[in-house]
Amino acid sequence: MKTVSLSAPTRSSTVKFRMPTRDNLVPIRVDVEVDGQRYRDAFTWNPRDPDSEIISFAKRTAKDLKLPASFVPQMLQSIQGQLAEFRSYEGQEMQIKEKIMPLKIDLRVNNTLVRDQFLWDIGNLDSDPEEFARTLCDDLNITDPEVGPAIAVSIREQLYEIASQSVSAMREAKVSKKRRAPEFASNSKAMNNAVDMFKYFGSKGSVIRKRKEWYLYAPVVDVVPNEEVVVVDTTEGA
């Protein structure tokens, strides 16, 4: 049994494009401005849901937030556009292989600032950003209920970007194969960010990080008092 799995490890496989997480949820970010009012939001959407859900969602959100009805078509357009983009990737092939990438979180949610970096295996289709974010919030005693979902969406956005890059890399690889051009040229670009596996996981390496590097991968959370939020906002806008 063991020898079989050792001799033929499935190092990489191709699957149809999807989010490289357990739940195939698409991160959606909406930023709509109507008549001087601005609505910004981020959430996840199941692409299997019927599109009729979007309009009811938009209406409901506008009602809950007491936004004028003129927001609804814009929100609808924004969400539909992002879903359409996701669906344009679906059906194409994506390479799933172990690839550990550093993900960065740099968010401000209401009064909470979160900055963090951690490693994520793009090939792990069992990953769950929401659960990760929940653990993070629990561990750090973050009380604001909006922080967790925001972190999860941020993770999903980065995964989405990497996955879509992988799709285009696959396409390029196919084209270049036909031309008999060297293959690695297109691949190296996507790979340059990934963790050097051999360095840490090889027989000489160690998965225990050096103490002086800890600060890079530790989360930093700041709670800004209300007065300062305004200041941060203005600097962000500039």
């Binding site: 550990i100 993900l103 951690f118 490693l119 994520w120 295996d121 792990n124 069992d126 990953s127 769950d128 659960e131 990760f132 653990t135 993070l136 629990d138 561990d139 750090l140 963790v195 840490y200 996981f201 998965v207 225990i208 990080r209 103490r211 800890w214 600060y215 991968y217 530790a218 989360p219």
Partner: peptide, 18 residues
């Protein structure tokens, strides 16, 4: 001990580590 604390010292997939 919390996961977030352990995580910074270990190299590897966050999902797997969790």
């Amino acid at each position: 001990l919390t996961f977030t604390e352990v995580r910074k010292a270990l190299v590897g997939d966050a999902t797997l580590l969790r």
